[in-house]
């Protein structure tokens, strides 16, 4: 019965003289507020492909939706730590970004990344870092080590803000202690716990919101921060002569990168490839970067970037800075992280 109806509908559609059905299409599934309308308009004008955008607010949502059998998406943009999961779950397909003409524009450091070593499934999109920001005018000097955040001196005691997301805080502690992320070793996690407990008397808030507010009104002198937010904090603070600086500590910063991937169920694979190649062109990625305020691993973008994006120290990390990428932890190490966090806050 259903088959009958379906074929009847299909027959009707085939007969109807609408042009919409001959049109080429692309369904993009991306983060909320993360797609430059200008870039999409340009892509549509150049290729004649009509783009439809749907959005998600977390990698977990994306994963859950694909796992539940959602079909029809042609390009998705997951974070690096979800790339191996998507590959393992066979939710994405190989497409060989290296063979695309614009792949030559990708900065060398983003080629063959750890999460897709042979670059079969991904092409780079935006990337960013997590570190600490501080009020340089109140602190009186440059912050050079994460040690100044974990064991603050008089200038910052009682005025340290820490994220409320256990993974990020524990990763920063690992970075400072020189330990591996997602650590299953109880002895090393004990060190993390000791470090965070010793820091606690100097902490005023555990919160992942309002970092810039607290830095600018002086509640906090040092705060965990994301680079994109730090840029906003610096420009906001400058209005009242407050100096908010994003630190690149000698131990390094935590990195993330989003990637363009094609789901296994994509219906317009060729259009998806055209889109990915299009986005790897510097002038197009620059449009995208101006819109979101994040860096992208494409060479030659400078010409298209606005002044702020071109010069912001938060976005343009020094070449010698160590960027360590986080991972989605397995169950045993995740349990240890939760345990440490509960012990710190109980």
């Amino acid at each position: 019965m259903r088959l009958l109806v379906a074929s009847a509908v299909a027959g009707l559609l085939a007969l109807s003289p609408t042009t919409a059905w001959s049109e080429e299409k692309l369904f993009l599934y991306n983060w909320t507020d993360y797609t430059s309308p200008e870039a999409i308009k340009k892509f549509e004008a150049e290729t004649g492909i009509k783009v439809t955008i749907d959005t998600y607010d977390s990698n977990e949502t994306l994963l859950a939706k694909l796992k539940a059998g959602a079909t029809g998406y042609d390009v998705i943009i997951p974070s690096h730590n979800f790339v191996p999961i998507l590959i393992d779950e066979k939710l994405v397909q190989k497409y060989d970004a290296k063979a695309m003409p614009n792949f030559a524009n990708v900065e060398d450091r983003w080629k063959n990344p750890d999460w897709d070593k042979s670059q079969e499934y991904t092409a780079p999109f935006h990337w960013g870092t997590t570190s600490v920001a501080y009020r340089e005018d109140l602190y009186g000097k440059k912050l050079e080590s994460l040690g100044e955040f974990f064991t603050p001196g008089d200038k910052a005691a009682g005025r340290v803000s820490v994220f409320k997301t256990p993974e990020e805080v524990v990763n920063l502690a690992h970075l400072y202690l020189g330990q591996k992320f997602c650590n299953p070793d109880p002895a090393q996690m004990q060190k993390v716990q000791d470090l965070l407990l010793a820091q606690k008397p100097a902490v005023n808030t555990y919160s992942s919101e309002g970092m810039n507010d607290r830095l600018i009104n002086g509640d906090s002198v040092i705060s965990t921060q994301w680079n994109g937010y730090a840029l906003k904090g610096r420009t906001e603070g400058a209005k009242s002569a407050k100096v908010v600086t994003y630190a690149y500590p000698k131990e390094g910063v935590i990195g993330w990168m989003d990637n363009m991937m094609i789901p296994a169920t994509a219906g317009n694979v060729e259009n998806a490839k055209k889109f990915i190649n299009f986005m790897m062109a510097p002038e197009n990625m620059a449009l995208q970067a101006n819109f979101t305020g994040y860096a992208a691993g494409i060479k030659g973008m400078e010409k298209g970037l606005n002044e702020e994006m071109r010069t912001a120290p938060e976005i343009n990390a020094p070449a010698d800075v160590k960027i360590v990428f986080s991972w989605a932890c397995d169950a045993p190490s995740q349990k240890l992280i939760d345990k440490v966090w509960t012990n710190i806050l109980k």
Binding site: V203, N204, T205, S207, T342, L345, K346
Partner: peptide, 10 residues
């Protein structure tokens, strides 16, 4: 507790 207490104690 989260906003005014700084979320320091669960």
């Amino acid at each position: 507790p989260d906003l005014l207490g700084g979320g320091k104690k669960l």
